[in-house]
Amino acid sequence: MTIIQNAIDINKPVAEVYRFLADLNNHEALMPDNIYNWSSTEDEARFTIKNMTKLALRISQRVENKELVCVPAEEAPFAITLRWKLDAQSENVTNAAFVIEAELNMMMKMMASGPLQKLVDHQVSKLKEVLG
């Protein structure tokens, strides 16, 4: 199991950060430029990663103000789980951690680890930018 993660503190209450992340329609704002053909509902998102693959993700678990888990909604190139973990640091500060867990063989790990880490880093910084 390959685990790729990053975390950031956001100056917003945990309920506000959770509300934003719990709706996959909002996740388009967190995506890098190499994501296109985005379509989403509150519970599912479909998109294409330039020069790579198409993905369909769905929310498989919501734990209010704590955690949000996304898994592939269709066949994916490898088993993957995307997890947002939230922790209230204070009344107005939330730590948001984005964790990708992927079943990668050695070859896939060499090819995918860098882009996945860039995706995680990009999404946590965009979350802070979008939510202020």
Rank of each mutant, 00 (worst) to 15 (best):
P72F: 04
Q117E: 10
L131M: 09
N95V: 09
V14W: 11
A45E: 05
W38L: 04
T41S: 15
M108V: 05
N95K: 10
I8S: 05
E129T: 13
A56V: 10
D33G: 09
V130E: 11
I3V: 15
N26I: 02
H122W: 00
L86R: 03
L55T: 04
L24W: 01
S125V: 13
D87L: 07
G132A: 09
G114W: 06
K109N: 10
N92H: 15
M106W: 13
M108P: 03
E101F: 01
V93K: 13
L55N: 09
M31W: 11
K109Q: 14
F47W: 14
Q89I: 15
R46F: 12
Y18T: 02
F78G: 05
V124L: 03
D23E: 08
M52G: 12
I49Y: 04
E44K: 15
A97N: 00
A73T: 03
V14A: 11
N34R: 09
K128N: 14
K128F: 12
V63S: 10
I100S: 01
Y36I: 00
F20K: 06
E75R: 13
E91R: 11
A22E: 12
E67T: 09
Q5S: 13
N11H: 15
K118S: 14
F20I: 01
R58C: 07
P72K: 02
E42H: 14
